[in-house]
Design a protein around this nucleic acid. Structure first.
Lengths: 373, 373
DNA sequence: CTGAAAGCGCTTACAG
DNA sequence: CTGAAAGCGCTTACAG
């Protein structure tokens, strides 16, 4: 019944929440002093600060994010918009891993990730505008970079801290992290050339994505440099296109002896077409993928792929975005400085049986040591 | 230079943000009237309301989530804590799909999802406490339900709206959605019995998870009912345990003719062991999985599995949680009513070649029509 | 180093 | 139906 009993009554705020006013009262100082103390800012003596901190802990005080944000502090939230249906995201291994990597870094720094699924790029830009107007996020991460991406100028106008995942180039005055797809392409082409292949093919996915174009260019260039015959086929999204592309390649008068697919799903779909038409992998035709995953690892034969840890990619992106947010407004930031870009992670070639010239696959077996051909 | 030019000056708030004060001034009413109007609450005439709404749109006003939250409105955020390392999350297909499903529903309702990765269950409970104290989320979704899960009583104490993903049962006074694992188990056992199998085995994953126990029990019961010999092996997390379990099962004097694995990764690992030791799938031993994914679909032979759309599961969970949040505090809510549970989605048996008694696998081919054995 | 005040943008009683 | 005010919990100048 008595309301003065200390410890009975958690705090004076809404729903008995503990506020800095409670701490101030106990410590015999003003709320402003508490604010300075708990934020580690100068303005209070060490003795006072320590007393305040002790009381704050005793009372299990937690700062109110809303109040802080309203008073002008960062909201400790970063945003990511995905203009792809949930169905596509859910089946893509990259998404979950990338998000997990982002989360790991953000959680540790007490930031949270806000995600939103929208229908179109326009809706995505609109979401950025609204988030900015609402002060809902401190910054955003932009994925699925395309050529002449309309999101870039929109974000430049907004002056909302943003990190582009993709590149190099094509990210305007925004900072970016990327995986070097041209380099990855060369790793694959060089490996296949070393295995003795002279006629290579590339089956490409979504032609609008920037990295698809970069792979196209690098593929042509490297084949030319090494004096190889290289053909490209655009298959579009999904596995159906990859199946058709594989069939068409096989039907050529001089079919390629090695095929590089843009994704793991495409590689598997293509491989099945090859096997059904009687081609053995890798003896008749080698198969490689730009995307590594459990699918490529567990397929028989296991498929050579570019390993670029999506988790690590997420971690690097989160780390870089936090840097961008924290230095935002610090300098006038010349476009050149702002547009700084960093390689996120090195692509690595993971060689597996699907491209080994010396591989002999024992029937009904996978990992058994292979005798040299 | 003139500051009175309408349209030149976006708003009067911090960083020229448009606030309800700007709208009020233009409409010749008080901010309170604007608040009532934009929130569709009674207290303003229809004419006034319409005028206010028009101005709000013209000015492209966006409500401030922080201000709303501080004034007591919901924060429009739900939380999810994951006590698993990013590495594990990233490689699990279920995670990305479940999150995509959650997001889809939440985004549409203007809610956002806050995620946090922590190290332990204690840290998870601590996060719930802090989120509650901070008023950071309106509710939480609890995944990876275990037996005697300490999170349940902790959340009951907190009175933070929470939805348990898992069950039936074991979720205390909290509402829950679940997939009926006992039913899924019966689907698998019945199917294998129909295919003529009399000696079944089950290779189980993490023994602490509630659904593992439920599968164990249902497996034993159903085998007994049908007069089948059923053995269970606990393999633990990861693929290594599944490989060992498969090898041990094969080495038995009377080895099983059909094996059910708890996950897709385990099924694949087990299948490879079987094939390496010379067993043909499905002729010598049938293989099935509790978890469907691209792995089971693309494996040769494709593996029979329980399909339970993780995306749909996420959608159902989000929908139910929003209901819980919206009705929170409405009634005194008897424990019985609160603890209501709902089946999230029906498990479906997806029969594939790995369990078809009549399947004859053509060499080096997958989907070709099979002649009856 | 400390205190008193204003303000962030909204909502919610409480009078008229 | 409308207006004026207080308050949510914090931060940030601004005086002493």
């Amino acid at each position: 019944m008595t309301t003065s009993k200390q410890g009975r009554q958690p705090g004076s705020g809404r729903g008995q929440r503990v506020t800095i006013a409670d701490i101030a009262r106990r410590a015999g100082v003003t709320p402003a002093a508490v604010s300075l103390a708990v934020n580690g800012r100068p303005g209070v003596s060490d003795a006072t600060r320590e007393r305040i901190m002790t009381i704050a802990e005793e009372l299990r005080w937690e700062p109110s994010p809303s109040a802080r944000a309203l008073a002008g502090a960062p909201v400790l939230t970063v945003g990511m918009v995905l203009a792809r249906p949930a169905e596509v995201l859910g089946t893509e291994a990259f998404f979950g891993a990338f998000v997990a990597g982002l989360q790991e870094v953000l959680s540790r720094r007490d930031y949270s990730l806000q995600m939103k699924i929208v229908e179109s790029t326009d809706a995505e830009i609109d979401t950025f505008r609204r988030w900015f107007a609402q002060r809902r996020v401190d910054g955003v991460v932009v994925v699925d970079l395309r050529q002449d991406d309309p999101r870039i100028p929109a974000l430049e106008d907004l002056r909302l801290p943003a990190l582009v995942v993709g590149g190099p180039g094509h990210h305007g005055a925004l900072p970016a992290v990327y995986v070097d797809d041209a380099h990855a392409t060369r790793l694959l082409v060089d490996h296949l050339a070393e295995q003795g292949h002279r006629r290579l093919a590339r089956v490409a996915g979504d032609g609008e994505l920037l990295h698809t174009l970069q792979r196209d260019r690098a593929f042509e260039e490297r084949c030319a440099e090494l004096g190889l015959a290289g053909v490209s086929q655009v298959a579009g999204f999904g596995t159906r296109g990859a199946e058709i592309a594989a069939a068409e390649l096989l039907a050529r008068p001089e079919p390629p002896t090695a095929i590089i697919f843009d994704s793991d799903e495409m590689a598997l779909a293509g491989a099945h077409v090859l096997e059904q038409s009687g081609s053995r992998i890798p003896q008749d035709v080698a198969v490689a993928s730009f995307e590594d995953s459990a699918l490529t690892r567990t397929h028989r034969p296991p498929i050579t792929a570019i390993g670029r840890s999506a988790i690590e990619y997420g971690r690097v992106a989160a780390t870089r975005l936090l840097e961008v947010i924290e230095t935002a407004g610090t300098r006038p930031s010349t476009p050149e400085a702002a547009a700084e870009e960093a390689r996120a992670i090195e692509p690595v070639l993971v060689v597996r049986e699907s491209t080994r010239a010396d591989a002999v696959r024992p029937p009904a077996s996978g990992d058994a040591p292979a005798a040299a051909g």
